[in-house]
Amino acid sequence: MSEPIIKIQDLSKSFDTPDGEIKVLDGINLEIYRGEIFGIIGVSGAGKSTLVRCINFLERPTSGKVFFDGKDLASLSQKELYRTRQSMGMIFQQFNLLMQRTALDNVCFPLEIAGTDKKTARKKAKELLELVGLPDKANSYPSQLSGGQRQRVAIARALATDPKVLLCDEATSALDPSTTREVLALLKDINKRLNVTIVVITHEMKVVEEICNRVAIIDSHLIAEIGTVEEIFARPKSQAARRLFYPEGKQLALHGDRCCRIVFDGNSASEPVIADMVLRFRTTVNILFADTKNIDGKAFGQIVIQLPQEEGVADRMIEYLKAKGLAVEEVEGFV
């Protein structure tokens, strides 16, 4: 985890359009470490797909630098860039399989590009189809496979050249919830077993919660916040993070009173904190919302409570909760 495998420095990207120049990314700085699953989340149009394409130079940054494995991608010749891309696999929302090739030949494809001989390529492709759980679909064409199966073939294909990094561009957005879970589990398994660094681009919080170690939140062309998923979940610093992590906030917007959010992790959940607090202050609080989430195997709970009207009591309640070691945050603005 020492030296980053991907390092992005002051990256900006603009596109020329008939309506003038449009800035898509602005001053992005990012380090992704070996072996981690790194999430990049943002609403559509935030620039995250462009960002992932800058990592393998499918899009050249307007300014700034991208280092992969210590190499400045801009300094590479076209040939070297092709070779470097072979150590970065990529999967897509629409799978992007070759429709006129069988599953096996699809997995062989990147090896053909790399110049691997046919026999070795087929052997490797068979192993990979086994790894993704589709050994019996080798001779099926993509049109004969379901969405989840197609994405599995695409994952096998992306892994064919033994990449160091796997870039996933909205890889589960076209899949139903249960298939999404399966594919995410597969990605997690691949990350552990093959020690491939995975970069996940998504607009869905549950994808980040399920597999990411760290996450960057992109909001209107900028990185709003970077941190571990637990950290941001417990103490979101930016509006964008709050909106993404607590989408239910919008539903609570009616209440005018002061509210606060309390986040529990597995350790603090055993004490009856709210009940104790109510007894102690002899004032009731209104629970507006409660929810538990599973982040990377750990249970997290959150409660949004409406604080009493009296100013002093509300402040003291917040103090009390903080003293109990809970992440407490007053929620306003969008709530």
Binding site: F92, M99, L167
Partner: peptide, 15 residues
């Protein structure tokens, strides 16, 4: 031909 498939090939380092 689907642009996405061409992009996939480019991402694999195809000339």
């Amino acid at each position: 031909v689907d642009k996405g498939v061409i992009e996939a090939a480019q991402s694999m380092g195809a000339s």
